[in-house]
């Protein structure tokens, strides 16, 4: 019906295996003392898992540029929300006007 190629079953199973492996890895990393890299590593692994799901399960690899634009803009908006809010929250103490 659409012109998108069909991702073979074998590849879907492989992606699932990678996702389960990365889940095990993130739990192992939890028990390793990584210092300040603790949270970045955990979020990095989650990011890789999300990209795998987006590319293969959600077939983003074969989606149109318009679909990709929606996702990029959605993430950009989330970034703006986070950056703008944290910018405010973390600098309130500087002027001594009611830090929480």
């Amino acid at each position: 019906m659409t012109n998108e190629p069909i991702i073979p079953t074998r590849k879907l199973l492989l992606v699932c295996g990678c996702l389960l492996g990365l889940t095990a890895l993130t739990v192992v990393a939890y028990y390793v003392d990584l210092g300040v890299f603790h949270t970045p590593v955990a979020l990095g692994i989650a990011g890789v898992k999300a990209v795998l799901i987006l590319l293969y399960f959600m077939q983003l690899r074969y989606s149109s540029g318009m679909t990709r634009a929606v996702i990029i803009v959605g993430l950009l908006w989330l970034g703006l929300l986070l950056a703008g809010t944290m910018d405010d929250a973390l600098t309130r103490g500087w002027l001594n006007v009611g830090a929480p």
Binding site: T23, T26, V27, Y30, Y31, D33, H38, T39, A42, L43, I45, A46, K49, A50, I53, L54, F57, M58
Partner: peptide, 24 residues
């Protein structure tokens, strides 16, 4: 529906490190 299901999966994948894996 598949896209919706995978999206909900991705949200959980971020909830795991944010809630369960903060610090030992």
């Amino acid at each position: 529906t598949g896209l919706y299901w995978h999206f909900v999966d991705i949200i959980w994948i971020f909830l795991l490190p944010l809630l369960y894996l903060i610090a030992k």
